[in-house]
Write a protein that binds this DNA or RNA. Structure first.
Lengths: 218, 218
DNA sequence: TAAGAAATTGCAGCGTCTGCAAGATTCGAC
DNA sequence: GTCGAATCTTGCAGACGCTGCAATTTCTTA
């Protein structure tokens, strides 16, 4: 209940093609379970969906569900964390002389552009969280790990040795980054649906880098 | 499991004195339960403490536990949210011409100075989260509600009508604020133990308002 | 002190999640 | 192809979290 590890450190983008049959089946099951979970949750509301329902809809036994996800919520909103695995490299690839927030913002934008594949699942998840704000804390909580990862990467990039312990700066930038991305994504999903998420995120980072000047007061 | 409401909207600082015997007993029970939960969790680790244990240590029945807290975690880390209730007024009391981040930072600092009462419980909780990072997501998640409250307050203060929907700005400032407070508190708790938390928070806000300039690279 | 309000408790029950030990499936080497 | 090893799936039993309900006890108030 309190533990929050992933049941399986499989990367989110496991290759649908290539590799052995085993891998393909596993990936298919994982996708089926997640889709089933999201679809059912959208239909009935998360609290009216049991693990048994999800497993049945995905065509596996209830016990198998827990071979893929550590918890019911994990199947619904737990994907985000996994995504940040590759992010670190994107960040470290930015030119050395860029200010931290700019580099991070650029890396994030790049990262987002590479994501636009799972549109479908993301749309499901977005609608779900919109209709059921109870899930929001879980989503935010899931970012905690990503944040620590990012803090390490930032410290590394800035040439600070020990990560975060002796300097608040990397931690702060990491936290603010995750926050900005989150807010911008929400914004992009809810209001600015016509704009590319990456653009909205860029805007948020621009505002941050400028010290959050007040907009015109109305 | 997914629901995240409080079992009881009792203010965190219920009057230990005054009022009837009933109120005093309720407050005592609440405190006893929280203390028991924290103490046991620190001793054995959260996952090795059952609700039955907590109830027994507090001298009430297991069923009664759930009359006071919606979940086990709520007893451990759920207090934070309640605290933000009064924050809004502090913010709205700041002079109108202050830049948003400055006003928010000042309000936060003020708010923190008023908190230094529960030192004991806070220390317990801090040590607990430090030793058991699994709890961190829950703590962060608990801030989600506070964040929305704050966004509303900021929008109100900035004179923006509808809260957050049509402008990303208040949401962003609110999110960044909660984030900064969180990081600064962590910092104050872990490293800068000699400095007042309020000071560390102020520093974090100064960095934010300055657009997060890079520290000297080493 | 008696009626009424509110808190405590036990119980029955659903749902989440885990460990364990079978049984089925895939893989790699021959 | 075949066989053994590695891996996945599944059922089962059970601990634990959490809830509704109804009976009982404790406080309040008139």
């Amino acid at each position: 209940m309190i533990e929050e590890r992933s049941a399986d450190p499989t990367p989110a983008d496991a290759p649908p093609t290539g590799a052995g049959l085993r891998e393909r089946k596993k990936h298919a099951t994982r996708v089926a379970l997640r889709r089933a979970a999201l679809t059912l949750a959208v239909e009935r509301g998360p609290e009216h969906v049991t693990v048994d329902d999800i497993a049945a809809a995905a065509g596996v036994s209830p016990r198998t569900f827990f071979n893929y996800f550590a918890s019911k919520e994990d199947a619904l909103v737990g994907e985000h964390t996994e995504r940040f695995a590759a992010f670190r490299e994107l960040l470290l690839a930015r030119p050395d002389d860029e200010p931290p927030l700019v580099a991070v913002g650029a890396a994030v934008a790049e990262y987002l552009r590479g994501i636009e594949l799972d549109r479908e699942v993301w749309a499901l998840r977005r609608g779900l969280v919109e209709r059921h704000p109870e899930l929001l804390p879980r989503v935010l909580g899931a970012n905690a790990n990503a944040e620590r990862e990012l803090a390490h990467a930032i410290a590394e990039r800035a040439g600070l040795a020990g990560a975060g312990a002796e300097d608040m700066y990397p931690t702060l930038v990491a936290a603010v980054t995750i926050t900005a991305v989150r807010v911008a994504m929400l914004r992009a999903a809810c209001t600015d649906t016509e704009r590319a998420p990456a653009d909205v995120v860029s805007e948020a980072f621009a505002a941050l880098a400028a010290g959050l000047p007040a907009p015109s007061r109305g």
